[in-house]
Design a protein around this nucleic acid. Structure first.
Lengths: 222, 222
DNA sequence: GAATTACAGTGGCAAATGCAACTGTATGGT
DNA sequence: ACCATACAGTTGCATTTGCCACTGTAATTC
């Protein structure tokens, strides 16, 4: 539990809650911890869920796999972050997304339906949790909007620039590492992998960017 | 106030609250009502806001206008629905979106920063409001995911089918009317208008759909 | 009712993209 | 050490798309 505490403390969901309180809170919330191997499915499209997951260790991808075998990455969830909270909150919606363990990982599940309704133990953190959950979902909302901003550009170059600018801003540096392989970056931006490689090469030639695998550097140019 | 009540009652935000209570609640929340003319900006990119808006009358578009004059419609907000809640909730984020009155409209603004923090009057609906807000944002979250589902398809035809299928499902009929002009539909799906018109014509030829302006009919085919 | 404006459809064309195939380089397992 | 696999880059080609210009029709204004 101790090793989890540090991570959870940095989570929006448990922000501002002390360790001792956190432990009793986790009991009150009936959480459970599960391990997954790389590639395993955590949630599948069509599932109805009441539990949101917090990544304690590893990386998880939220994605849409379509009919024709194309996969689109909606978001990447790293330790301390939460997934499935919108569905778990609503409680009665079929998942339109799939959640997959991108690496081996440990997940803490929390039943939000229970967490949101009145706690018989009159757990005093109950309200705080709901408010934290609210912030967390609002934040995710912004992330989705940002993703739309990238993918709704017309050309690959514009999508790439939009995405890389955003990563640069979040890393507060023109040097940064992205959490994607080339294929995943393509899935995230909803473009073809080889077309993406091509365009990245052109952009390097044009002096816009430098990169080596998933390490990028935005140039001042132009 | 009475004429607003019916609309607000159907809003997620005030769901399950009686009329008498609603009025005292609105006072407690320091709401204000504002009218906008067609085309006016309600919020602009870069603004920092604390108030979410509820559409009482008219239609509002949440959109991203880029650098090169392209506009992308993120969502369409009709009476009873809310906008800006994620930003107002977080309270300290610059808007990456613009909100525009698509028609003449009346908007009720609610300061979420005040609404979410402890109410000195110990308004007993306070907690309920936060929970409603949570549902509302979770719902919007799903809508954004759905939009991503449409726009991340590779071809215009796939985007259109994805979007129209969704509209059909929501209307529970293969005959339905969409809330867009052709240009707006193109903006929503992030494609070129004339290319969209062309593809729609082809799809009609192929017997997939029938349409007349913004009225559509999905055919069983094929 | 004439003029203006908004809107949807069409055609042509250049550019961008997806797709398939192939190469080379790491990486990991046995 | 060898084999298999994953990953990134490159090339060529057919298709799709964006963009531009134009037409026709409906809606709006004066």
């Amino acid at each position: 539990m101790d090793k989890n505490y540090r991570i959870l403390y940095e989570t929006g969901l448990f922000g501002g809650i002390e360790e001792a309180d956190l432990i009793s809170m986790l009991n009150c919330l009936h959480t459970r911890e599960v391990q997954y191997g790389k590639g395993e499915f955590i949630y599948q499209e069509g599932d109805v869920i009441q539990e949101a997951g917090i990544v304690l260790e590893g990386t998880v991808h939220v994605q849409q796999d379509d009919f024709w075998g194309n996969c689109h990455i909606i978001s990447v969830v790293q330790p301390g972050n939460i997934f499935g909270e919108a569905y778990a909150c609503l409680g009665n919606e079929k998942l339109q997304i799939t959640v997959r363990a991108e690496t081996d990982c440990r997940i803490l599940f929390i039943n939000l339906q229970k967490a949101m309704h009145v706690c018989k133990n009159t757990c005093r953190f109950h309200q705080k949790l709901v408010k934290n959950l609210l912030y967390s979902i609002a934040r995710k909302n912004l992330n989705l909007t940002t993703k739309i901003q990238h993918t709704s550009r017309r050309t690959i170059r514009e999508k790439v620039l939009s995405y890389l600018s955003d990563e640069s801003r979040r890393n507060e540096s023109s040097y940064f590492t992205i959490p994607f392989t080339r294929q995943q970056m393509a899935d995230f931006l909803a473009v073809d992998r080889s077309a993406l490689s091509k365009e990245l090469s052109k952009m390097k030639q044009d002096g816009l960017i430098e990169f080596e695998r998933n390490q990028f550097h935005l140039m001042l140019e132009k």
